[in-house]
Nucleic acid binder design. Structure first.
Lengths: 340, 340
DNA sequence: AGTTAATATTTAACCGATTAAATTATTTGC
DNA sequence: GCAAATAATTTAATCGGTTAAATATTAACT
C-alpha cells in the first residue's frame, strides 16, 4: 500500500497539485465545483498530508520539544517521578488538541538538545526544571520560542510558568507551627543557587521567623528528589537523635520516602513524626494516612505552558510573560496536632 | 540565525551537495582530502542535518509512535498510571540510544492514530495494552512494523512482548493460600474477553483449585484500573460483609486504592486484610507496609519492545516473535501469615 | 604514450508538499 | 460584442536533503 500523495489526489480530481493544495488551505479562491471534486478524491483515496513534506516548505513541524531532566540509566527508567509524568501528560494532551505533537527528550541538558531542535525543526520548546546557565544561553541562540516551567532563570528572554515556591513551603511550615510543632526538620533535594529547593527553604525560614522559632541548621537535610533519598534523610535524622516532631518535605516524593524510612525503624506517621509534603502528586491522597501537602495544579502548569507557547509561536512579538500559579494547603492525615 | 543547510556546507568546502552527502553517509567513496574539508566546514558552520528533509527522500522518519490508552480529560491528566510512565520512560530511553525519537499519542485507538502514522511517516509503532479488534485490523493495513506490549491479540501479524498474566496471579494467589488464607477476594479492572484482567482471573482460579478451595463468584470484584476504583471495590467488599481475609489485586494501583479504602473505614493492612498486588510499580516498595506483589520488569518490557521493533525495521522479513518476560513474587509486608 | 579500469565528483531528478508568478477562463461594464 | 477586470487554475521554483547516472580525474597496465 504505497503512500497516497497530493499528486495522486490531483490526478484523480483532474487538476494540478497546486489546485488541491489551495483547495485545502483556502489561500487562493477555488471554485466550488473543483473543491467538491478534490474533496471526493481525498475521501476516496484516504489521503492524509505528509507533515514532513509540508513542514519542509512551510518551515514548521507542528512539533513541540519537551526537555525533562535526565533519568539515570539505572535499573528502573521512568519519567523520573509522578510530578513529571503528570506535567508531561498534560502537555501532550493540550498540544494534541491544537494539532501539535510532543517530542520528549530526557536529557542532561547538554548540547544534544540543541541538536534535536535543529534536526526536527521544533516549533517550540517547553523546558521543565532548572538547568545550568550555559544551557539557557545556548537555547536562546536557537531563536525558537521557549517556555520555562519551574525555573528561576532570570533571563528576560524566556516565558515562565511557575509557582511561588517560597510561599508554598511557608504555608506548609506555618501549618506545622500552628499544629504546635516547633522542632521541625526540613527535607530537600539538592539546593542549587536560585533553584526551587532553595526557594522552598526560604519559605520554611520565613514561617519559623514569624513564629519566633529559631532557625537551626541541624534541622536542614539535603538529598535528592527521590524516594530512596527520603528514606536516607529520615535515617539521618533518627541517627542524629534530633528531637524533631515534624518534617517539612520539599517534595511529596521525599515525604513518602521519609514515611517509609520512619516506618522501617518502627516509627509511625503521624504518631511519632508529623509529615507534610509539597506538590500533591496523585498518590499523595491514597497513602495511609493521606499525605498533608501543598497542592499545586500540576496539570494546569502543562496547560498554561502549552497555551503560552502556542500563542508565542503564532505571534513571535509576544512580550515575555511570567505566570505564577496558585497554591493551596491540603490537610489530610499526616500531621498530628500537638495542641488543640 | 538562519538554518545551515547542506548547500552552505558544500559551498564552504568548495564541493557539491552530493559530495557532502556522500562524505557523510559513506555510500560512495570520497577522497580523504575532500572528506577532511567537508568535515571542517561542518564543524565551522555547526551544521546539523534536517531529519525531515532527509526523511522525505529516504522515506523514513526515525520516529517511533507509541500508543497508550487515552486518559480521560479530567482534572488530572497524566500517563494514566505509573506502569505506563515507566514503560514509556524505558521506550524513550532505548529508542534514543538508537537515534530514534518517540511520538506518544494517548489515544482511544480510533482512526486518529492511523492518521498520525501517515502524517508523520512513523518508522514503527509500539502499542501498549489491549484494544478492540478493528483497531488491529486497521493498523495492519498501514504496513508499518508494530510491536504489541501486553496484548493477547492473536493476529499472527504482530510481534508481542508480554508476561504470563495467568501465571502471575497464580503465584500471587498461591502465596496467599500458603499463608493460610482461604477466603480470598479478587480485585480486577475491566475484564474484557481475552484481556489481561481475564487472564489474571484465570490464574487466581487455578491456584484455588490447586488448594481445593472452592471458587465463589461473590469474591470477584470488577472495576477500573485506578486508585479510586480500588477504594470503591474495598468498600463494596466491606459493605457486603464478606468474611474475606485477603485480597488479590490484579494491579498494584488497585491494591493501593484498596488499602486506602480499608484504612478509611478503620481497617488495617495486613492486620485486618492481607493484600497482594501485581506489577511492582515503583511506589509499591515505598508504601507502609511495603506491598507484597508480583514483579514484572516493566522497563525490560520497553527495552525488548524497542529492540524487537528496530530489528524488524531493519529487516522487514523478520518472522513474528512473541516474548514472554519473567515474573517473580516479591514478599513485603502486606500479607499476614495466618498459619506459622 | 594510450587505453583501460578504477576512483572521485558533479549533474540533475526526486521525495511530498507550498506558493509566487504566469496563464487561462469567466464576468462585468459600456 | 469586446476590452478590461476579476476569478480560477497551472507552471515551475522551492524547502533540505538523497542518489542514479553521467562525467571528470587519477591509477594501472601493456
Amino acid at each position: 500500500m504505497a503512500r497516497v500523495t497530493l499528486k495522486d489526489v490531483a490526478q484523480r480530481a483532474g487538476v494540478t497539485t497546486a489546485t488541491v493544495s489551495y483547495a485545502l488551505s483556502g489561500k487562493r479562491p477555488i471554485s466550488e465545483a473543483t473543491k467538491q471534486r478534490v474533496m471526493e478524491a481525498i475521501a476516496e483515496l484516504d489521503y492524509v498530508p505528509d507533515l514532513n513534506a509540508r513542514g519542509l516548505s512551510m518551515r514548521d513541524s507542528k512539533l513541540i520539544g519537551v526537555v525533562v531532566p535526565q533519568t539515570e540509566p539505572g535499573e528502573r527508567l521512568m519519567f523520573q517521578n509522578s510530578f513529571y509524568s503528570e506535567v508531561l501528560g498534560s502537555i501532550e494532551y493540550y498540544a494534541r488538541q491544537q494539532g501539535y505533537h510532543i517530542l520528549i527528550s530526557a536529557t542532561d541538558a547538554n548540547e544534544s538538545y540543541l541538536t534535536l531542535a535543529k534536526q526536527r525543526n521544533l516549533d517550540g520548546i517547553i523546558v521543565i526544571g532548572m538547568y545550568p546557565d550555559e544551557f539557557y544561553q545556548q537555547m536562546k541562540k536557537t531563536q525558537i520560542p521557549i517556555v520555562l516551567i519551574d525555573s528561576y532563570c532570570n533571563d528576560h528572554y524566556y516565558h515562565n510558568i511557575r509557582i511561588d515556591d517560597a510561599y508554598g513551603s511557608y504555608l506548609a511550615t506555618r501549618y506545622m507551627l500552628e499544629c504546635g510543632h516547633t522542632r521541625i526538620a526540613f527535607f530537600a533535594g539538592q539546593m542549587k543557587e536560585n533553584g526551587v529547593m532553595k526557594k522552598r527553604l526560604l519559605g520554611y525560614r520565613q514561617a519559623l521567623e514569624e513564629f519566633a522559632v529559631p532557625y537551626r541548621k541541624e534541622y536542614i537535610f539535603e538529598g535528592q528528589i527521590d524516594y530512596t533519598s527520603g528514606i536516607a534523610l529520615a535515617n539521618r535524622l533518627m541517627d542524629q537523635g534530633l528531637p524533631a516532631t515534624g518534617v517539612v518535605a520539599a517534595a511529596d516524593i521525599l515525604a513518602i520516602g521519609a514515611a517509609k524510612g520512619f516506618f522501617e525503624r518502627g516509627k509511625r506517621v503521624p504518631e511519632d513524626y508529623s509529615l507534610i509534603g509539597f506538590d500533591d502528586v496523585e498518590i499523595a491522597q491514597y497513602l495511609t494516612p493521606g499525605l498533608t501537602t501543598i497542592r499545586q495544579q500540576i496539570s494546569l502548569k502543562g496547560q498554561k505552558a502549552v497555551e503560552l507557547l502556542l500563542k508565542h509561536i503564532e505571534d513571535p512579538s509576544l512580550p515575555k510573560q511570567e505566570e505564577i500559579l496558585p497554591l493551596q494547603l491540603v490537610v489530610r492525615g499526616s500531621v498530628k496536632k500537638l495542641n488543640g
